[in-house]
Amino acid sequence: MISDDTIQRLEDVRAAIAHAAALADRPAASVTLIAVSKTHPAEAIVPLLDAGQRAFGENRVAEAAAKWPALRARYAGVTLHLIGQLQSNKADEAVALFDAIHAVDRPSLVAALGRAMDAAGRRPDCFVQVNIGEEPQKGGCAIADLPALLAQAREVGLPVAGLMCLPPADVEPAPYFALLAKLARDHGLAQLSMGMSGDYPTAVTIGATHVRVGSALFGVREA
């Protein structure tokens, strides 16, 4: 049954986070597990909600808007995290729907989010995405551009909680996580959104405060 399988996977992921946190002499509670529910229907999400999971990640505004109002009406305390790239023209909708935005990566988006937050009187936490592996096909600001983007974000009133990254695939992620952690320290930022299903224990040992886990919770989707 999907319910039983999902609950077991959730317990396994929580245990792996707790073990990694202990290795780093951190409390497990210092790590927020974001269940990446993108592309999954409500019936696949409900078992996690029933088991007490409350932080979820979506990568499209429209998909989240279709799924989550009804689920939030049934389950108190849900926090929604936008983990995908955000178009500037969707800033108003994102600010209204999400509690945290993890892919703030360019000046035009910073400006759009600033206007949207001023208009809505609502200020979701923001993570600035860094292109930590300098990969042209990926989003994220260049490391060299990070100081200027952070300055702009603070100037327009974005609540910058921390940094986010997606390390290069198929290589050891630890050096990239360590670099992001150093950048966060250098800029006085306490939170790190890093680590996914294949590498979240490593991210936790290096300081991740938010891990974005999809397939390890929901199973691998068939092609």
Score class of each variant (00 low, 15 high):
136 P>S: 15
8 Q>N: 13
18 A>Y: 04
111 A>G: 00
110 V>C: 08
167 P>E: 12
11 E>D: 14
89 N>R: 14
112 A>E: 11
25 D>A: 13
53 Q>K: 06
64 A>F: 07
125 D>L: 15
74 R>P: 03
158 L>C: 03
129 Q>E: 15
183 L>K: 07
103 A>W: 08
216 A>T: 03
101 I>F: 03
45 I>R: 03
147 P>M: 07
110 V>T: 03
64 A>V: 05
223 A>I: 07
101 I>E: 02
216 A>R: 01
197 S>F: 00
75 Y>C: 01
220 V>N: 05
123 R>S: 15
44 A>W: 08
75 Y>A: 02
138 K>C: 14
168 P>I: 12
181 A>C: 13
2 I>Y: 10
161 A>G: 09
55 A>H: 12
178 A>I: 07
150 L>K: 06
166 L>P: 00
149 L>R: 08
3 S>C: 05
123 R>M: 00
210 H>Y: 15
20 A>C: 09
129 Q>D: 14
205 T>P: 08
57 G>S: 02
118 D>A: 15
76 A>R: 10
2 I>L: 12
164 M>N: 11
88 S>V: 01
137 Q>I: 04
98 F>S: 01
13 V>L: 09
99 D>I: 09
213 V>E: 06
178 A>V: 02
156 V>F: 12
222 E>W: 00
47 P>W: 08
197 S>A: 07
89 N>W: 11
45 I>A: 06
116 A>W: 03
199 D>Q: 05
29 A>G: 08
47 P>T: 08
170 D>Y: 02
218 F>T: 04
131 N>G: 06
219 G>S: 10
88 S>I: 03
54 R>A: 09
20 A>N: 08
57 G>E: 04
7 I>V: 15
178 A>T: 14
138 K>G: 11
129 Q>R: 09
58 E>C: 04
123 R>L: 02
47 P>V: 06
215 S>A: 14
123 R>T: 13
178 A>L: 11
77 G>Y: 03
7 I>Q: 15
127 F>H: 10
72 R>T: 07
217 L>E: 01
39 T>N: 02
